[in-house]
Amino acid sequence: MSTRRTRTIVAALATVLLAGSMAACGNSDTGGGDGGGDGKIVLGFSQVGAESGWRTANTTSIKDAAVEAGIELKFDDAQQKQENQIKAIRNFIQQKVDVIAFSPVVESGWDTVLKEAKDAGIPVILTDRAVDSADKTLYKTFLGSDFVKEGRLAGEWLVEQTKTAAGPVNIVELQGTTGSAPANDRKEGFAAAIAANPNLKIVASQSGDFKRADGKQVMEQFLKANPDIDVLFAHNDDMGLGALEAITAAGKVPGKDITIITIDAVKDGMQALADGKFNFIAECSPLLGPQLMELVKKVEAGEEVPARIETEETTFTQEQAREALPNRKY
């Protein structure tokens, strides 16, 4: 056989072997995220929005924790609209991410899209807020707070403070986003707790959508319709901070003329408590990022995880807020 012919055959064989090698590489995708080529887990996360200081701190915690954990994060801001979250989840499914996590805008209406994720073999983690789906197999776990407990702690503190009150105590309530888990649960917990004192009466209750500006606007309406307000219960600090402006503008002293109870314990709220403008805060920590990334790794690996994981939280009085403020991370 001539040297030229031998070289031709060798070259042809090399081409065939190279093509086979490339085809094998192309078939090595196990169905993970499109960032999985470099070995990273891909997490699709849909956030409620940026409606409050708490939410901003929550987003920062998740983004920072993903970087530290070496997880590729595909982040979506739903701008407080359920339709945006459903669209984002469907996009994550199309992109074949490894895990989907989201903080639901509202509790209801998720079964269809969650089933789509389940059928695609993509596990889902709920963070911060729960859903009311009867089929618990549609998601792997829930990570967040006990909102009923937060409302109950706020109510129990008020019951203790008003146990010697002779007459009626008029309460106004600034609710969170209508239909959301924290709004529903905090209202439930607070109402159950204050039932222990028949003098405690909620005279007005309306949503402020967890926003500072809305809290101010609704509080202005409360003050016009109810001149004798004794207590404000706000479902988060931001609405309480907005209400402070309305109370001050009405010529009343927040924290004295009107007792103010809120939930979250973000830095601005804690400062208001330390200054005596708020009276009590039940904590709801937004720093869920590190725990979420641990769960993502376990779920993606097929490990069993608890159906519900609650964060450890506390409550604050004025003195406790002053002590905690210098080291507050959010």
Rank of each mutant, 00 (worst) to 15 (best):
Val42Glu: 11
Gly35Ile: 00
Leu13Ser: 12
Ser28Val: 11
Gly39His: 13
Ala50Ser: 13
Gly35Phe: 07
Ala19Phe: 03
Ile41Arg: 00
Ile41Pro: 00
Ala24Thr: 13
Val16Phe: 07
Cys25Glu: 13
Gly39Gln: 08
Gly33Thr: 07
Leu43Ala: 06
Met22Gln: 12
Thr30Ala: 12
Ile41Lys: 04
Cys25Ile: 13
Gly37Trp: 11
Glu51Phe: 02
Ile41Met: 03
Ala14Val: 12
Lys40Thr: 09
Gly32Pro: 07
Gly53Pro: 05
Gln47Lys: 10
Met22Glu: 13
Met22Gly: 04
Gly53Glu: 07
Gly20Tyr: 00
Phe45Cys: 01
Gly33Trp: 01
Ala19Asn: 03
Gly53Ile: 03
Glu51His: 01
Leu17Phe: 12
Ile41His: 04
Gly32Asp: 12
Leu18Cys: 09
Gly33Met: 04
Val48Ser: 02
Asp38Glu: 12
Gly44His: 03
Gly20Ser: 03
Gly44Lys: 03
Leu43Ile: 08
Thr15Asp: 03
Lys40Ile: 03
Ser28Ala: 15
Ala14Thr: 08
Gly39Asn: 09
Asp34Thr: 14
Ala14Cys: 09
Gln47Thr: 06
Cys25Ser: 09
Gly35Glu: 10
Gly36Tyr: 06
Cys25Asn: 10
Val16Gln: 05
Gly35Cys: 07
Ile41Glu: 00
Ser46Val: 01
Phe45Pro: 01
Gly44Ala: 06
Asp34His: 13
Met22Lys: 07
Asn27His: 14
Gly36Phe: 04
Lys40Gln: 14
Gly31Lys: 04
Ser21Asp: 08
Val16Ala: 12
Gly31Leu: 07
Phe45Thr: 01
Leu13Arg: 09
Val48Phe: 01
Ala50Met: 12
Asp38Val: 12
Phe45Trp: 04
Asp29Phe: 05
Trp54Arg: 02
Phe45Gly: 01
Asn27Trp: 13
Gly32Asn: 15
Ala24Lys: 09
Asp29Leu: 06
Ala14Pro: 00
Gly33Glu: 05
Gly36Val: 08
Gly49Val: 00
Gly32Gln: 08
Gly39Trp: 12
Glu51Pro: 01
Gly26Ile: 01
Gly49Ser: 08
Asp34Trp: 11
Gly20Ile: 03
Gly49Asn: 01
Ser28Cys: 11
Gly53Lys: 03
Ala24Gly: 11
Asp38Arg: 11
Leu13Thr: 15
Asn27Met: 15
Ile41Gln: 02
Phe45Ile: 01
Ala50Pro: 02
Gln47His: 14
Ala19Trp: 04
Gly31Asn: 07
Asp38Ile: 08
Gly49Cys: 02
Thr15Trp: 08
Gly31Cys: 09
Asp38His: 11
Ala19Glu: 06
Asp38Cys: 08
Thr15Gly: 14
Leu43Glu: 05
Gly44Ile: 02
Gly31Val: 12
Gly36Asp: 13
Trp54Gly: 00
Ala19Ile: 10
Val42Trp: 00
Leu17Val: 15
Gly32Ala: 11
Gly31Arg: 08
Leu17His: 07
Ser28Arg: 13
Val48Asp: 00
Gly26Val: 03
Gly20Ala: 09
Ala23Tyr: 10
Leu13Asp: 08
Glu51Ile: 06
Gly33Ser: 09
Ser46Leu: 01
Thr15Leu: 15
Gly49Leu: 05
Gly44Arg: 02
Ala24Val: 14
Gly49Asp: 04
Ala23Thr: 10
Gly36Lys: 05
Gly31Pro: 05
Ala50Val: 14
Glu51Leu: 03
Ser52Gly: 09
Glu51Tyr: 02
Ser28Gln: 14
Thr15Phe: 11
